[in-house]
Simulated assay, not measured.
Amino acid sequence: MNLTTALVTGSSRGIGAAIAVQLRARGVTVIGHASKAHDADTIGADLADPAAPARLWDAALERGNGRIDILVNNAGLFAANPISLSDIAWLDNWEDTLRINLTAAAELSRFAVRHWLAGGRGGRVVHIASRAGYRGDSPEHWHYAAAKGGMIAMHKTIARQYAAQGIMSYAICPGFTDTAMAGDYLASRGGPGLLADIPLGRVAAPEEIAAIATFCALDAPESMTGTVIDANGASYVR
C-alpha cells in the first residue's frame, strides 16, 4: 500500500504539472494545487490571499488522511514591475509577488515542519527557487529575485535546524524553463539573445526540472539536505 503523500503547489501547468506526473509514476499520492480547482485531484487556493495557505494545508491534510510526507513549494508569480510605475502600483506588485512566491511557501513549510515534528517522523520539502535568487533578474523583476533569494535562505535554515528530527530540505534553482510554447516563450524574453547567454544553447524543459525535484523528494540521500541544485544550462555557475 502506498503510504507516501505529497502536496505540490502550482501543479496545474509547467514545472508543477511535470512534477506531479513524475511523482505519481513513482507511486506517490499527489495532492495538487492551483489558484482554482480544475479537477478532483486539485485544491483551489489563491495564494495571494493571506488566509489561503492555511486553508490549503488543512484541505490537503484531510485528503491525505491526516498525513503529508512531502511538500513541493512550486507555485509562483513572474510578472513585470517597472520602476516607472506609481509608488502604490509598484508596491502592490512587490507585495503580491512576495506573498505568492515566498510568504505562502514559508507558511506551508511551517505547517509541514510542525506536522512532522508533532508526528515524530521525518518529511521532505522541495523548494523550486530560481537562478535569480543568486544572479538577480531584470530591472522589472526586483521582487522576483528577492523572493527567490528569500526562499533559498529559508530552505537553508530549515535544513540546518531540523535535520536531526529527520526533516530534509532541498532547493532547485532553474534558469529559464520553457513552460509555454517555445516560440512565444523565447520571443517574450529576447529571442535568440536569451540563448546566447546559455552555454547549453537552449532553455530547460519542465520535465528536466521535475526529474530533479522527484529525485530530491524520493531518492536524495539525507546528507544532501541543505543542498541547492542549479539547473540553468551553465548560464550561472557558483
Rank of each mutant, 00 (worst) to 15 (best):
T4G: 00
V8N: 07
T9F: 11
S11N: 10
I15W: 04
A17Y: 04
A17S: 13
A18R: 01
A20I: 04
A20G: 14
Q22S: 04
L23A: 06
R24C: 08
A25C: 07
R26K: 15
T29V: 11
V30K: 12
G32I: 00
G32N: 03
A34E: 04
S35M: 10
A37D: 08
H38L: 10
D39F: 12
A40G: 08
T42P: 00
I43M: 05
G44P: 07
A45H: 09
D46S: 09
A48F: 00
A51R: 12
A52M: 07
L56R: 07
L56Q: 05
W57Y: 09
D58P: 00
A60K: 09
A60P: 13
R63T: 07
N65R: 14
G66E: 07
G66T: 03
R67W: 03
I68T: 04
I70N: 02
L71A: 08
L71G: 09
N73Y: 04
N74D: 10
A75E: 07
A75K: 09
G76A: 15
A79D: 13
N81I: 01
L85Q: 14
L85Y: 11
L85C: 02
D87L: 15
D87G: 12
I88C: 03
A89T: 15
L91R: 14
D92G: 05
E95Y: 07
E95A: 09
E95H: 15
D96I: 07
L98D: 01
R99Y: 00
N101G: 11
L102E: 01
L102Y: 03
L102P: 03
T103I: 12
T103E: 01
A104N: 09
A106E: 01
A106I: 09
V113M: 08
G119T: 07
G120W: 05
G120F: 05
R121D: 05
G123E: 04
G123F: 09
V126D: 00
H127D: 14
S130Q: 08
R131H: 01
R135Q: 15
R135M: 10
D137V: 00
A147N: 02
G150A: 02
M151K: 00
M151D: 07
I152Y: 06
H155N: 15
T157G: 13
I158P: 04
R160Q: 13
Y162S: 03
A163I: 13
A163W: 12
A163P: 05
I167Y: 10
I167M: 06
Y170L: 13
Y170M: 14
I172H: 02
F176A: 15
F176D: 08
T177I: 13
D178A: 15
D178V: 14
T179G: 12
T179P: 06
A180H: 13
D184H: 05
Y185T: 03
L186E: 05
A187N: 15
A187M: 08
R189W: 09
R189A: 04
G191V: 10
P192I: 04
P192E: 14
D197N: 14
I198F: 07
L200Q: 12
V203S: 02
V203W: 03
A204C: 12
E208Q: 06
A210C: 06
C216N: 12
L218I: 10
L218A: 05
A220Y: 05
E222F: 05
S223E: 14
G226K: 08
G226Y: 11
V228R: 03
I229Y: 12
D230F: 03
A231F: 06
Y236S: 03
